[in-house]
């Protein structure tokens, strides 16, 4: 198992290099001169040229990329063109906010979706099932920013229960987490229902009932346990998505997270910030995926055995 983990960590290296390469070159290919963005509108050609020189923008793209990667090997993700601050430090300042929002959203989604998915599966083809699926359809189809604004209007403007945005304690976390979580809940509900329907029809479920196990035991001990792998997969995927930033929710709720940082930096052509933040997000995603894979092994001994053999 340990060897498997080490192998996965080593495999992260090419993923990071490929990501940095794609992002760095993509940023260069999109139009827009960072020097022009930074210079005052009435800057002279000479001043713009000086900014370019200072930022190293006159070097060929492969030289700049090489320098960037050399810096990265030393743990230096560069300095933002715009704020002149250390990219790693800026990212790490924003990351706790994103983690906070991501985990809370996924937690909310899981607490709503898993029970609902089980419930709809048990009551397949009844109005309860239809109701659950309508909820799921609603959640999937609803645009994030629209839901966010609706929640703000209801809970902030009309009821005055919660702040409309910003980051001031747990109260300001509820609405953005609900907004992000509702979209996730819809997908998790559908996956849970589908996974449960697969196992409900299995012979061992009938056997369990025949042996006199209570319905609760049959569903949770025998059913849910065997349906967990796809559910964990989808929860993990949603967590990965949320950890790389929920741009729309962060914008609507003025939440200072990683997603907003990346989008703002793209519009300002802040290449070091965009590249650094995406590389860090890539690392984060790899780690989350590794953790999810390890959780598989925990719930399914067959997978654990596979990992041991592969390791």
């Amino acid at each position: 198992m340990i060897r498997y983990i080490i192998k996965r960590i080593i495999l992260m290296v090419p993923a990071i290099i490929a990501t940095s390469f794609i992002i760095y070159f993509a940023m260069n290919m999109t139009g827009g001169d960072p020097a022009l963005t930074l210079a005052p509108e009435n800057a002279t050609e000479q001043q713009i040229e000086e900014i370019r020189e200072e930022l190293g923008l006159n070097d060929p793209i492969y030289v700049r990329y090489g320098k960037y990667m050399l810096g990265m090997l030393k743990g230096d993700l560069g300095t933002s063109y715009v704020t002149k601050r250390d990219v790693f430090k800026t990212f790490m300042e924003r990351l706790p906010n994103t983690i906070e929002l991501a985990f809370t959203a996924v937690l909310i989604a899981t607490l709503i979706a898993v029970p609902l998915g089980i419930y709809t599966a048990i009551h397949q083809n009844t109005w309860k099932d239809t109701g659950g699926m309508v909820f799921a359809l609603f959640g999937v189809s609803m645009p994030n920013f629209w839901l966010g604004l609706m929640l703000i209007i209801i809970f902030s403007l009309n009821l005055k229960w919660l702040p409309s945005g910003g980051k001031e304690g747990i109260r300001s976390l509820i609405l953005p987490a609900l907004t992000v979580g509702m979209g996730f809940a819809a997908l998790i509900t559908r996956t849970t229902r589908s996974a449960m329907l697969d196992v409900i029809r299995q012979d061992y479920m009938t056997t369990a009932r025949a042996k006199g196990a209570s319905e609760k035991t049959v569903i949770f001990q025998h059913g849910l346990k065997n349906a967990l792998i796809p559910i964990i997969t989808v929860i993990g995927m949603q967590l990965s998505n949320a950890l790389t930033g929920s741009v729309l929710a962060e914008t609507v709720f003025s939440w200072p997270g990683v997603g907003r940082l990346i989008v703002d930096s793209i519009s300002k052509r802040d290449t070091p910030m965009v590249t650094g933040a995406i590389i860090m997000s890539c690392v984060l995603m790899c780690v989350v995926n590794l953790v999810i894979d390890l959780i598989y092994a925990f719930f399914d001994p067959r997978i654990k055995a596979q990992y041991s053999r592969k390791g």
């Binding site: 902030s156 005055k160 702040p163 945005g165 910003g166 609507v252 003025s254 907003r260």
Partner: peptide, 18 residues
């Protein structure tokens, strides 16, 4: 100074006294 990038959120924040 607090940035509220979404204009509608900024309006509601003012109405809310935030």
């Amino acid at each position: 100074f607090k940035p509220y990038l979404e204009a509608s959120s900024r309006v509601i924040a003012l109405q809310n006294g935030e």
